[in-house]
């Protein structure tokens, strides 16, 4: 049955990488160890019977105050099998993840957004800088300890252009 195909093939090839396989509402989510991320994604993309060639989404979740704190979620789609797969990786605060932007070009901007919102750095990313917020912004908004209104909300907003500073 396709439902377990990716999971079974992964467990066969990388037995120490797979931590958990969950099924919820018809979707499959496989939690893997951080060190094996690139190999697992390459395998899922290149293996002919699986062919998960499209990275649909990449995001992070903050489980503050749990440890490890962050979870990276990769959502893959296979055109051949017409199936979706969620790959989850736990990342602690201060750890860096490996960039997959050479495997999936879509990851270039998606990883920049994760860095912008959570502060998770990606090794070997071609251009890791903020994408949605301005470069002078301090803090990572989607972390749970960042207030919704941001810092300095009580002060009236003023903007000075570069020539005036």
């Amino acid at each position: 049955m396709d439902r377990c195909l990716a999971g079974d093939l992964l467990k066969g090839k990388f037995p120490e990488a797979v931590e958990k396989i969950e099924y919820f509402r018809g979707d499959t989510a496989i939690t893997i160890r951080r060190e094996f991320l690139r190999e697992v994604l390459c395998f899922l993309k290149d293996k002919e019977s699986l062919n998960y060639e499209m990275l649909v989404d990449l995001t992070g979740v903050d489980f503050f105050p749990a440890d490890p704190r962050f979870m990276l979620v990769y959502l893959l789609h296979s055109m051949k099998l017409n199936k979706r797969l969620l790959i989850k990786v736990w990342i602690g605060e201060g750890d860096t993840a490996e960039s997959v932007s050479d495997i999936f070009r879509a990851a270039e901007w998606l990883e920049r957004e994760v860095f912008d919102m959570f502060g998770i750095k990606f090794k070997h990313h071609p251009d890791l800088r903020r994408i949605l917020l301005s470069d002078e912004f301090s803090g990572y908004p989607l972390r749970k300890d960042f207030p919704l209104e941001g810092h300095d909300f009580a002060k009236p907003f003023s903007v000075l252009l570069e020539e005036e500073r």
Binding site: V56, D57, T59, R105, W109
Partner: peptide, 25 residues
Amino acid sequence: YIVSDGSPKPLRLRIRPPSFLNLGA
């Protein structure tokens, strides 16, 4: 993509925007 921890407010609501990825190309 919604992550729920059982409370009335979502723990994480992620929006997968098609135009974001289209613009990346």
